[in-house]
């Protein structure tokens, strides 16, 4: 009987020690898990900040009708890049307007101004110097953000920053290009000389 009790006690103690040992062993193995298997259990974060950038680019930046005269008997000649025509004069037709692309990563407002108006650029009786804007890629300036009627002609504006044409010129690649066409009416009594003008496009981050 005494022996049985001793044996039972030893058995209980042995079980207890085994359980404690099991706990210790498990914890120790957990610590070596990484070392043994390469399993990553920690978490890491990667942070990246994309800086906003604003940029506009004229891919077509020059309109040159060359030399010419108003046809005899006509009061004026009309040169228009939108229709690609010259009527009433001998200049070479130009069918490509300015192409302006938003190559940044933010939407911008767009204003257009020129350094001269019709009188100072062309002169003569009733000259005309106008521009019109269209989406070269659909949706580049959504209709809700167009500050002028796209496709309609407007007199140029010499007061900086100029005429607001779009409140939200998009930057997404498939819809980020506008076309700016120019129409000039040259009167027969305009002074004959080589005439030049600069159009400035001002983009401001929205």
């Amino acid at each position: 009987m005494e022996t049985d009790k001793v044996l039972l006690t030893i058995a209980v103690v042995a079980v207890a020690v085994s359980v404690i040992g099991l706990v210790f062993t498990y914890n120790t193995i957990s610590g070596f898990k990484l070392w043994l298997t390469g399993l990553a259990t920690d978490t890491a974060t990667a942070n990246v900040t994309i800086t906003s950038s604003e940029a506009i680019n004229f891919t077509t930046d020059n309109i040159n009708w060359g030399s010419g005269t108003v046809n005899g008997g006509e009061t004026n000649a009309t040169l228009d890049t939108a229709s690609g025509t010259v009527t009433g004069g001998t200049w070479t037709a130009v069918s490509q307007g300015f192409i302006l692309e938003n190559i940044g990563n933010v939407n911008v407002t767009l204003d257009l101004a020129t350094d001269k108006d019709a009188s100072t650029f062309i002169g003569g009786t009733s000259p005309l110097y106008q521009f019109n804007v269209t989406n070269n890629e659909a949706g580049s300036c959504p209709s809700a953000n167009q500050s002028i009627t796209f496709g309609a002609y407007y007199d140029v504006n010499t007061t900086s920053p100029g005429t607001r044409v779009c409140d939200n010129f998009q930057f997404t690649d498939a819809s980020d290009t506008l076309r700016i066409d120019i129409k000039v009416v040259i009167p027969a009594d305009a002074i004959p000389e080589a005439k030049g003008s600069i159009m400035t496009a001002t983009a401001t981050a929205v």
Binding site: N62, N64, V108, A194, G196, S197, M199, T202, A205
Partner: peptide, 17 residues
């Protein structure tokens, strides 16, 4: 941009805020 006689040229202008 220098004005070139006989052409209509362009000038780009950006404004950061």
């Amino acid at each position: 941009t220098k004005e070139e006689k006989g052409t209509i040229g362009v000038s780009a202008n950006v404004r950061a805020v």
